[in-house]
Design a protein around this nucleic acid. Structure first.
Length: 663
DNA sequence: CTAGGGTTAG
C-alpha cells in the first residue's frame, strides 16, 4: 500500500481559486541544455549482412532510429513483413511524413502493395499516415485496398478523430459495420472517442457521445478499461459528470488509466476536491499511480495554492516514479510557482534533464508572474542553445512577463519582431497582451488604436481590460464609453460596473459612483465577494471582508489594529480612494481597515514564528491600499510576504514590493 | 498492422 498522504487532510474541504506565482534570488540560469547527438544519421554497422530474423528485429529495435533502421533494411532485400514492422516503428516516435512516403514508395516499387493480399502492410502504411495527422493520405491508402479488416478501419477512424475531424470519424464508424461488414471492437471506441469533445465542446457532442456509449453497451464492451477511459474523458469534456460516474462504476477498476481519467474528469468539471479524494481511493485500492496522475495532482495543488499538499504529492511521486517524464516535471515546476515558491520552481527546472519547450514556457511564465522579466528574457535567449524552438506560447509568456513589469519598450519590440525573427504570427492572445500592456502603462489611445487595427474582433474580456486601465489612470471619458458598450454587450457582468464605479470613486465623484452601484443593484447583479486565504500546515484559513467567523477572530483583529498602529507610525497613510463603497470620509477609512488580505496577514503573523515568510492568496485583484499596507507590514515585521492575486504575485520585503508598484 | 489518461497559455 502506498503511503496515503497523511490520510489526505481528513476529507479536505478546500478553496476555490484563481491563477499564478512569485519570487526571488535570481539563480543565473545555468540551463546547460544537453546537446543531443546530431540527427538520427549513421546506421549501426553490422559486419555481416543480417539474417531474415535480424532484419525483422532491426526495424523495431529501440536502439536505432527508424531512419537508420530503414537504411539497413532497404539495403538488405526486405520482406513485406519487415516493411510493416518498420512502418510501425516509424509511426511511434514523432513520425516524419517524408520518411514515410519514401518507405511507401519503396514498398510500391517492390510490388508489395500491388495486388493480392497485402492487408497487413497496407494497414501499416495507412496507420503511418494517420499517425502523422494526415488522415486524407491514410484515406487514399484505404480506398485502394482490396480487403480491409477491423484493424484497418480502426486505424483510419483514429486518424480522423485525432486530427479533430470528428464528423468524418463518425461517418466511418457508421460505415464500418454497414458497408465494411466489420463490427466495432474494443479498439474502435477509444480510436473514435479520443478526438471527440476535446477540441470541440458543444451540445451535439453530448448527444453523439450518448449514442456512442449506447453502442459500447450493445457491443458488451462497457467493462473494458480502454473503452471506459475514453468514455470517461469524452463525458468529462462535455461536463457531464453524472455520466462520467456511471461509466466509471461499470468499468473494471483495477486499471490505473481509468483512475487517472477519472481524476482528470473531476478536474475538468472543477471538482478538485473530488479529484484528490479519487486519488486517495485509488491508493487505498493499491493501484500504483503513474506520471499522468501526478501531473494532474500537481496542477490541482498549484491552482488551489495548496503548498503543503503539493509537497506531499511531490514526495509521493519520488517514491513511486522512477522514470522522469517531461509533462510531470513541468506540472511540478508550475505547482511550485503557483504556490508562490519561485525558487523551488527554479530548482525543478534546473535539475530537470528532460527539458522541452513547455518546460521553458512554464518557467518563463513563472518568472513573469513573479516579477522577474530579466530572467525570463535570459531564459528565452537560452532556448536557442538548447536546440528547441520557441512557440507561440513562449512568445506570449515572455510578452506577458514584460507586461507585468511595465517594460513596454521591450514588449513592443518583441511583438513587432515576432513574425520576422521568430517566424511566429501573432495570435489574438498576443494582441490582447500588447493591448493590455499599452493600456495599463497609460497609452490608452494607442491601445484603442491597436484594437481597431488588429486582424481580430475584440472580445468583451479585452474591452474589460482596457476599462480596468481607464480606471487605473482615471480616464473617465474613455472609460464611460467602453463601459456603456459593455453594459449592452454583457449587462450582467459585475466587473464592468465595479470598474466604472472605481473610476468615479477615484476621481472623487461619489455621487456618480453611487449611481453605478444602484444601477447594479437594480439589475440584481452581485460582484464576487472578495476573500483571501492562507495555509498553515494542513489547514487553510479563509477570510472575507470584515470577516469575524474565525475561531480566534478577536485576537486577529487585535493584532491587525496593533499592526496598523505600527505601520502608521512608520509612515503608512490609508488610501481612501480604494474605499469605493461608502461615501462618508471617516467611514471609508474604516472600511479599508478590515479588508480580507489584511485579516489574512494579521492571522498569519499571529500564527507563525516571526521571520517566517507568509504566503497569502486572494481571489480578486489586490487592493491598492492593501498593497501599500503590505509594504509597511513587511517593514515593521521583517517578514517576507508573498501575495498572489488573480493575476500575478507580489513579493514584499523590507518595505518594497517586487512589482515596483506597477501592477 | 489498431486502443484509453497528463504539463505551459487568458
Amino acid at each position: 500500500m502506498f503511503c496515503p498522504l497523511v490520510c489526505l487532510w481528513p476529507l479536505l474541504s478546500c478553496l476555490p481559486s484563481p491563477m499564478p506565482p512569485i519570487l526571488p534570488p535570481p539563480t543565473p540560469c545555468a540551463a546547460d541544455s544537453t546537446p543531443r547527438p546530431a540527427g538520427d544519421a549513421v546506421p549501426h554497422r553490422n559486419q555481416k549482412p543480417p539474417t531474415h530474423r535480424q532484419r525483422c528485429r532491426i526495424t523495431t529495435s529501440s536502439s536505432s532510429s527508424p531512419l537508420s533502421a530503414a537504411r539497413v533494411l532497404i539495403a538488405n532485400d526486405p520482406t513485406p513483413r519487415a516493411f510493416s514492422a518498420l512502418f510501425k516503428a516509424a509511426s511511434s516516435s514523432s513520425p516524419s511524413p517524408s520518411l514515410g512516403s519514401q518507405l511507401h514508395a519503396q514498398a510500391v516499387v517492390r510490388g508489395f502493395l500491388g495486388d493480392g493480399d497485402n492487408t497487413i502492410l497496407s494497414t501499416a502504411v495507412l496507420n503511418f499516415y494517420a499517425s502523422c495527422r494526415e488522415p486524407d493520405l491514410a484515406r487514399r491508402v484505404f480506398d485502394r485496398m482490396a480487403r480491409r479488416n477491423a484493424v484497418t478501419w480502426n486505424a483510419l477512424i483514429k486518424g480522423y478523430a485525432q486530427a479533430g475531424r470528428r464528423d468524418e470519424a463518425l461517418a466511418l464508424f457508421r460505415c464500418m459495420r454497414r458497408q465494411g461488414g466489420v463490427a466495432p471492437d474494443k479498439y474502435t471506441f477509444p480510436a473514435l472517442l479520443s478526438g471527440i469533445g476535446r477540441n470541440h465542446g458543444g451540445g451535439c457532442v453530448q448527444e453523439l457521445g450518448g449514442a456512442v456509449h449506447a453502442q459500447v453497451v450493445k457491443s458488451g464492451l462497457d467493462k473494458d478499461p480502454f473503452v471506459g477511459a475514453s468514455l470517461v474523458s469524452m463525458y468529462a469534456a462535455t461536463g457531464a459528470l453524472e455520466d462520467v460516474k456511471v461509466v466509471f462504476d461499470d468499468v473494471d477498476t483495477l486499471d490505473p488509466v481509468v483512475w487517472s481519467s477519472m481524476i482528470s474528469a473531476y478536474i475538468n468539471c472543477k471538482e478538485e476536491e473530488a479529484a484528490l479524494l479519487t486519488f486517495y481511493k485509488m491508493l487505498c485500492q493499491d493501484i500504483k499511480p503513474r506520471q499522468f496522475v501526478y501531473s494532474s495532482l500537481f496542477a490541482i495543488c498549484g491552482s488551489m495554492s495548496m503548498l503543503e499538499m503539493g509537497r506531499q504529492v511531490h514526495a509521493h511521486s519520488l517514491k513511486n516514479i522512477t522514470d522522469k517524464d517531461a509533462a510531470m516535471t513541468n506540472a511540478l515546476l508550475t505547482m511550485y510557482s503557483d504556490c508562490g515558491c519561485i525558487d523551488d520552481a527554479w530548482r525543478v527546472f534546473e535539475s530537470n534533464d528532460i527539458v522541452d519547450v513547455i518546460s521553458y514556457n512554464s518557467m518563463i511564465l513563472a518568472l513573469g508572474q513573479h516579477a522577474q522579466p530579466k530572467e525570463a528574457a535570459e531564459l528565452f535567449r537560452q532556448i536557442k542553445f538548447s536546440g528547441l524552438i520557441p512557440d507561440e506560447v513562449t512568445l506570449l509568456n515572455l510578452l506577458s512577463a514584460f507586461n507585468h513589469a511595465g517594460l513596454v519598450h521591450e514588449g513592443l519590440h518583441l511583438f513587432d519582431s515576432m513574425l520576422d525573427i521568430e517566424g511566429i504570427k501573432p495570435t489574438y492572445q498576443h494582441y490582447a497582451c500588447v493591448i493590455d500592456m499599452l493600456a495599463r502603462s497609460g497609452e490608452i489611445e494607442e491601445s484603442m488604436k491597436t484594437i481597431k487595427e488588429m486582424p481580430f474582433e475584440a472580445e468583451t474580456s479585452l474591452w474589460r481590460i482596457v476599462l480596468g486601465a481607464c480606471s487605473k489612470h482615471g480616464d473617465i471619458e474613455t472609460g464611460m464609453k467602453i463601459a456603456e458598450m459593455l453594459f449592452e454587450m454583457e449587462p450582467y457582468e459585475p466587473t464592468n460596473y465595479i470598474l466604472l464605479g472605481n473610476i468615479c470613486a477615484r476621481l472623487g465623484r461619489w455621487a456618480e459612483a453611487e449611481k453605478v452601484r444602484s444601477l447594479m443593484e437594480k439589475r440584481g447583479i452581485d460582484g464576487d465577494d472578495a476573500f483571501s486565504w492562507i495555509e498553515m500546515g494542513q489547514t487553510t484559513h479563509k477570510f472575507g471582508v470584515d470577516d469575524r467567523s474565525h475561531p480566534i477572530s478577536e485576537e486577529i483583529y487585535r493584532n491587525l489594529d496593533r499592526l496598523i498602529g505600527s505601520i502608521k507610525a512608520a509612515g503608512y497613510v490609508p488610501d481612501t480612494n480604494f474605499a469605493t463603497h461608502s461615501t462618508e470620509k471617516d467611514r471609508r477609512e474604516e472600511s479599508l481597515r478590515y479588508h480580507c488580505e489584511k485579516l489574512a496577514f494579521a492571522f498569519g503573523d499571529l500564527a507563525s514564528p516571526s521571520g517566517d515568510t507568509l504566503r497569502i492568496m486572494k481571489n480578486l485583484r489586490v487592493c491598492g491600499d492593501c498593497h501599500s499596507a503590505y509594504k509597511y507590514f513587511s517593514l515593521v515585521t521583517g517578514r517576507k510576504i508573498v501575495l498572489r492575486d488573480n493575476h500575478r504575485f507580489h513579493h514584499f520585503y523590507n518595505g518594497a514590493c517586487s512589482c515596483g508598484d506597477y501592477w
